[in-house]
Write a protein that binds this DNA or RNA. Structure first.
Lengths: 333, 333
DNA sequence: TTGTACGCGTTATCAG
DNA sequence: CTGATAACGCGTACAA
């Protein structure tokens, strides 16, 4: 097999305990002994066994990230922030993708999940999700992103307020018939959806406007889905004069649908998206921008802190969003 | 601490060996014993320790994926394909991000990498990269994506041919002055870049056209970088009539730059990108589309096969690409 | 079909 | 400062 601490101990003429201590840089070893051990280890091309270390210490040396999707733009950005922090702390990153949260999916794989990591980052999964109960029961350090539960740390934006701001922007510009492209079909919506919907209805009510189901459709958070949804809105008996989409990607699809019909964003119909996608500027799409990398990094840092000090008080961080008005809502003055 | 096989054995009145066998569904246990053990395990809420299992069997039960970037669109798509296959096989996914390959980065973390996973998926890293030597030395199952080495499996597209096709398309449409937006600044390019560049120059030569450095610029594979690069091309003493970008995202940036100057894609300047990005249709961008999820899935499946049978012959799979002509290259007939 | 007992590679607890 | 030695939790020859 491969080189172990035993081999090093034998060659270096010390005990395995001393080898272990030297390797980990504990101060309780004389400098010269350590030097020697390190030299031998290097010469033998020693590579430690994380499994053995994990078994011995009880710490896996990694955190798991649980997410319903992996190929969405916003996920990539968050992941970037998370990865950076984790790498800096030298902990491994395990990725678990649960698939669409509205499916009755086969639960978060096995409970094996538990022992794999020392803590978890949970993305956009409703705290009430039955799947999560299993995780909560583990009583491990947890940080939720895009949702929150009283007994875990969380990092998120104020989805409700942000959505209301977007609608407020449209109302200000004189729109009275405002359509909506939301995410999943009804049941078990991911949290942020629910919050954004509340913000939407808050603002509509405040403006004295009626909610009309015929101009609301699900876009599944994809470009193609957004396009389909927009087609439905346009085909409604009375089409909307403005549309709010729960994600920029869906808004892009909506723009596509409009273009196919010769409708000009901002003139014929106003559109505002959500995320602050790289490409929203290019498409001149108004959007509510959120600091995704920062959200990821903040969550990761928080989780690491919780892991190091389990008694640490749980934190619920709320990061700011920003409305970015562009041509898709301001041309039609 | 937590429930172990020993606890189950005691409660169920059998040996730990029988517990282990039952838990893993080995056929060498009587049905009724197994039932009983499973029932007890369930009742005790037993959760196995992957670390212990790994230590005992020598298999980590996971594969590592090594990538220079994590927030690029194409990566998300590949990851989707990879994740699906891995999940189906019930193996964990470890993510290692190396950062920009042209930096002299601190090597692929530690060698600890080795024992963490049973195999690795390596994305877009040059086989000649010094970092990889360390990995190769491990003699573990490896599958490269977007690059290849004779002694490992690999899955890729024919970047050279694909790039040549894109240029051929432009040449066909009468373009003689063709600019290029490539990725990283010179040194240590990721492999696909080199290949695409070769395809570019192949086709240029074949058409009897000259390469002109003044209309070639790096865009760093980002939208913003693509925009900057395009500005440089437009400001060249003699601007190009057509531009080929190594990624759709950079092409999007180029479109942005054109729009800011009132230039119409397909009329004033033709543009063709690379990837088959979700949004290329929306922006009417001609592109060379590659089957990213399939690439990821194929690579993952291949790696799993190599892991199960180390003597398995290494495979080098080349998947097809497709030129998708759109308005950005065909309007100016 | 089932049980015994040892090994996997580290870390941690004691003595010394 | 260093060395035995006992865990850590599971898999698996080997024996019964």
């Amino acid at each position: 097999m491969s080189v172990t601490v035993k081999d090093i101990a034998r060659v270096a003429g010390v005990s395995t305990a001393t080898v272990s201590r030297s390797l980990r840089g504990l101060e309780t070893v004389s400098a010269e002994t350590r030097e020697h051990v390190l030299e031998v280890a290097h010469r033998l091309e020693y590579v430690g066994s994380p499994a053995a270390a994990a078994l011995s210490t009880g710490k896996a040396g990694s955190v798991g990230i649980i997410t319903p999707y992996v190929d969405r733009w916003s996920f990539g950005r968050m992941l970037g922030g998370i990865e950076r922090e984790l790498r800096a702390a030298n902990v491994d990153l395990l990725l678990y993708c649960t698939g669409d949260p509205s499916d009755p999916h086969p639960l978060l794989p096995h409970k094996r999940l538990a022992r794999r990591a020392d803590g978890f980052l949970i993305l956009s999964v409703a705290a009430e999700s039955p799947d999560l109960e299993e995780i909560f029961k583990l009583r491990m350090p947890l940080t939720m992103i895009g949702a929150s539960a009283p007994w875990t740390s969380s990092v998120r934006i104020d989805d409700r307020d942000a959505a209301a701001t977007a609608i407020g922007h449209l109302v200000e510009r004189g729109h009275q018939r405002i359509g909506l492209i939301y995410g999943r079909e009804k049941a078990n919506p991911i949290v942020l959806e629910h919050q954004r919907y509340l913000g939407f209805s808050d603002a509509m009510e405040r403006a004295g406007l009626e909610l009309d189901d015929s101009i609301q459709a699900p876009g599944g958070f994809t470009v193609a889905g957004g396009e389909e949804a927009m087609v439905r809105l346009l085909d409604a008996e009375q089409a909307p004069t403005a549309v709010f989409a729960f994600s920029d990607e869906m808004a892009f699809g909506a723009l596509q649908a409009m273009r196919r019909r010769g409708l000009r964003p901002g003139y014929d119909i106003a559109i505002v998206g959500f995320d602050g996608h790289d490409m929203s500027g290019l498409l001149d799409l108004s959007t509510v921008s959120q600091p995704l990398e920062l959200i990821g990094a903040t969550a990761a840092r928080n989780l690491l802190a919780d892991m190091n000090d389990p008694s640490r008080e749980r934190k619920a961080v709320v990061l700011p969003t920003e409305l970015v008005p562009r041509g898709s809502t301001v041309r039609d003055q």
